[in-house]
Computed example of a mutant assay.
Amino acid sequence: MDFPARVKQQSCMDCLSGQSLGFDIRMAFQPIIDWQRQEVFAYEALVRGPDGQGAGWVFERITDDNKYYFDQSCRVKAIETASRLGCDKLLSINFLPNAVYNPETCIRATIEASTLFGFDLRKIIFEVTEGEQILSQDKLRRIFESYARHGFLTAIDDFGAGFAGLDWLHSLKPAILKLDMSLIRDIHRDPAKQQRLAEVQRICHELGALILAEGIEVEEERDFLVNAGVRYLQGYLFARPALEHLAGRDEINGWR
């Protein structure tokens, strides 16, 4: 896609205005917990519509023409909202690799927003969903490498549902691997899923990558994962996403 010059010069305030996107967006946040330390590890920023409409409502309005603006706007809105809410944990932001035409250029608004709103760049996690159609694996690797150079953490979301096999993890070298809920569901009584988890844990140990299990809904799933050595957990068992709110520890369920 050939991006015009005005796109390349977009500032973080342009992203916040919603003018380039065509509608306003807001952010909901879901906590990711550190089971070992019994505290919040990070918050994942999840896009919502102007009146709190779900992500489906938003994505119905995303086209090839506004995908770049959407990707940039989500980053800036997540940083601005998290900073306003006093976030002092890691902030996980989803990004669309197919909307990134040049990693170094596309990251400028993120850096500008972090400076403007006083949010530490080293606390940002950029995660790509494995379910997205990746047009170029080499391009995604270059994006990950660029983000790592800037001090961002990188993550693969929904692992087990899409493009990335275990071998490709060696190329991407993500800091965090988020296991898809299809792998987590009923893992406590599914030997095949348990074996798959063990394989992923072995690779992540070699790479020095953290494993995060998402989509946890029942205590039995949580207990199996914890006993298997999975430290970082996320799911409805603990808390649902909350619009423009960071759930504190006393609002989170499913602790010991």
Results as ranks from 00 to 15, higher is better:
220 E>T: 10
220 E>L: 12
176 I>S: 08
205 H>W: 14
199 E>C: 14
233 L>G: 00
228 A>H: 05
168 W>I: 12
230 V>Y: 02
225 L>P: 00
200 V>Q: 09
192 A>R: 13
176 I>D: 08
217 E>A: 06
227 N>V: 01
193 K>Q: 15
181 M>D: 09
223 D>L: 08
164 A>W: 00
231 R>G: 00
165 G>R: 05
189 R>Y: 09
168 W>C: 09
177 L>M: 12
179 L>D: 11
235 G>E: 01
229 G>F: 03
167 D>F: 07
222 R>V: 00
181 M>T: 12
189 R>C: 13
197 L>H: 11
168 W>N: 06
166 L>M: 05
229 G>N: 08
163 F>N: 10
171 S>C: 08
204 C>Q: 04
197 L>K: 12
221 E>W: 00
163 F>I: 02
235 G>W: 04
169 L>D: 04
162 G>R: 05
194 Q>K: 12
172 L>W: 06
167 D>K: 10
222 R>A: 01
231 R>D: 03
214 E>F: 12
202 R>E: 14
188 H>N: 13
230 V>H: 05
203 I>R: 04
230 V>G: 05
215 G>L: 02
201 Q>K: 15
228 A>P: 07
218 V>C: 02
234 Q>P: 04
163 F>R: 07
180 D>A: 10
202 R>Q: 15
227 N>Y: 07
170 H>D: 10
180 D>G: 09
187 I>Y: 01
164 A>L: 07
219 E>Q: 12
181 M>A: 15
214 E>Q: 10
232 Y>W: 01
196 R>N: 14
205 H>R: 15
217 E>G: 04
233 L>N: 00
200 V>D: 07
164 A>K: 05
189 R>H: 09
189 R>P: 11
214 E>W: 03
189 R>F: 06
180 D>M: 11
225 L>D: 00
163 F>C: 07
234 Q>G: 04
192 A>Q: 14
183 L>H: 06
208 G>A: 05
206 E>I: 11
191 P>G: 02
214 E>G: 04
193 K>H: 13
203 I>M: 11
186 D>L: 14
162 G>E: 03
223 D>F: 02
235 G>I: 04
238 F>L: 01
205 H>T: 13
213 A>D: 01
188 H>D: 13
170 H>A: 07
170 H>I: 10
218 V>F: 01
161 A>T: 12
158 D>M: 01
207 L>M: 02
174 P>Q: 06
210 L>P: 08
227 N>D: 11
163 F>D: 03
178 K>A: 11
170 H>R: 13
232 Y>F: 07
221 E>H: 04
196 R>G: 12
